[in-house]
Design a protein around this nucleic acid. Structure first.
Lengths: 345, 345
DNA sequence: CTGTTAGCGCCTTCAC
DNA sequence: GTGAAGGCGCTAACAG
């Protein structure tokens, strides 16, 4: 008795067979018609479309994926979403992906948390995604190997090995702009607050900015000894600044590798009764909206645009197109009230 | 010639058959063994486990989904991720879901954008998710109907109809705490900045807080006429404050329905040469980390915890457990420097 | 242009 | 406790 159609579809609606029956065609034709493939009469296509619409038919993604090998889903790998940079990349990427009928799957791996560095479990991505966006995650070489094993296009944002499609600002330039600005104002004792002390990845943004800070300082004949770690958040920046200012009370300005930490530094200055910028100049990196509220001078970048571009580049790779190996978004110095010439003291 | 095993799996690794062969058992046994189902000897299970490990076998999600009808994926529906509240809910939810081997699929629908309210296309969720988290999205009745048609557990966070599993603070209490605080300080002219003017949903957070502001003001015999809309972001809050203070120069304090907008209000005060809190008191809602930097008094809530709980509640529903229809997280007044008694003038 | 027929990789009854 | 076989819903050759 194979006549009795097992109307399964687990209570999810109608299947392709229902549409086929309603339109009086075969399932193959329905599939072709609905996906806009050639070799279908306009009339048939329209008939199928109507039938599908009426029944509220949408192809079951897992069935489609199983048959095609494509998931129309992109994995977003990142440490946090509650940080400004990441939230904005994610938002830009997700919107762009959706415009192109792709889904965004979120995977957070907080590799910066205290304790031994947890390895990113790339195997959870197997068969789930057509492409991967790695955002601000300084991966170990073995992790890259694991990702490569997935045989899916990869795009890195805000961190990444040199030999892969990577979108990131010129970290050297970022530090140079910031430090040059402070030097230009007359500062000689320039402190530095950066990310995580255990982060030593050669392509971590924090590491690169710190290295460039050292370079610029050295090239100008200044000593780069006032350094503290703020773990990329407000509270961390505040604590780091306290530590820094206690150990190096002669510091007149601080270059901070993120606006969130920079605002923490400003809070610390206030804690200590120091006025910004009269007693202490502070410059950050990012272009956080709230920087305007505290008049934070910063080296700004358009993060949303980076998310959009990243999405476009994975999609392009999936489509078999060539993509640039390296995109370097512009940065610009945004002068506000947190930097000024040092007071004589 | 059906002997020639078509080793497809589209270059993705090994399939269940490979594991079966390696372990010398059938695919059925592999399936049972790997998923911890009963009726498998410890010895066989171990053998299968080893074989799978060695081959790096992971069941293809789409195949599994097609066979089981479950996707182990939860859809996150929200307007933005770049706003503090949302980024934190998402982060809490994603981590919790991952701990329970579930994926988080992101769907942003900016229903607050200018122009006609875009309808949330729930059909993109069909067959993609086992459950749905609706975060801070004031949906229309028809949209709820569409969601219900998916026959999947639903949890609302930060907004939601009264008759569904909803996690949200008591909005009345939020407004009461804030306004009472200002009244207690001696303010009589209390302005208000809230979200989007077109948002009239009876269960939008902004709408409810504004209504409660009116109620509390009225109950105290104060006029609630100084109102402006800040669209839930910093720039919007700033613009709204300018409008408000121009129209109602006698206002001595402002109750703002989010910390991000409240910080915009503080920026506007500075623009106008008004000192906070001497000339203008400002109180927000949320507990944004950066509130500390600008000494923002606020009615705080634990948003990360709400994300965690939301994830737990969908998972519980999927497991067939009963869940509370309403969870009301605690809020607390965080006194900082942005509120003070009004100056006589 | 359209229908038929195999799978896609895994799960799941049902025998053994 | 284990294996055989059919099915999940859709796509993709291949005929016609």
């Amino acid at each position: 008795m194979r006549t009795a159609r097992r109307a399964t579809l687990r209570g999810m609606g109608h299947g392709i067979e229902d549409v086929a029956r309603a339109a009086g065609v075969s399932t193959a034709t329905v599939s072709r018609a609905l996906r806009g493939l050639p070799h279908v009469t306009d009339a048939t296509r329209e008939r199928v479309r109507l039938a599908a619409l009426e029944l509220g038919y949408v192809a079951t993604p897992s069935a489609r994926s199983l048959a095609t090998g494509r998931t129309r889903t992109i994995g977003l790998l990142l440490p946090w979403v509650s940080h400004w940079f990441f939230a904005n990349v994610v938002e830009g990427a997700e919107r762009t992906l959706r415009e192109h009928d792709h889904d965004a799957l979120l995977y957070t791996f907080d590799v910066f948390e205290r304790g031994p560095r947890r390895r990113v479990e790339t195997h959870v991505l197997r068969g789930r995604v057509d492409g991967i966006l790695v955002v601000g995650l300084p991966l170990e070489p073995e992790e890259i190997v694991d990702l490569d094993a997935l045989v899916r296009p990869l795009v890195f944002v805000g961190s990444g090995p040199g030999d892969r499609c990577t979108i990131r600002v010129d970290e050297q330039e970022v530090s140079r702009i910031a430090v040059d600005h402070l030097i230009g104002l007359g500062h000689r004792r320039i402190g530095h607050v950066t990310g995580h002390p255990d982060d030593v990845s050669p392509w971590s943004a924090g590491v690169l900015r710190t290295r460039a800070w050292r370079d610029v300082m050295g090239a100008t004949g200044l000593t780069a000894d006032a350094l503290a770690y703020g773990n990329f958040d407000v509270g961390g920046g505040r604590a780091a600044a306290h530590e820094l200012l206690t150990r190096h009370p002669d510091v007149t300005s601080v270059f901070v590798t993120s606006d969130e930490m920079a605002m923490g530094v400003i809070a610390a200055a206030r804690d200590r009764g120091l006025r910004v910028p009269e007693d202490l100049s502070v410059i950050g990196v990012d272009g956080h909206e709230l920087g305007e509220v505290v008049a934070l001078t910063t080296v700004a970048q358009d993060v949303h645009a980076q998310g959009v571009l990243a999405a476009r580049l994975v999609l392009a790779q999936i489509a078999g197109e060539e993509v640039p190996q390296r995109v370097t978004p512009q940065v610009r110095l945004v002068l506000r009230g947190s930097t000024a010439p040092p007071r004589d003291r």
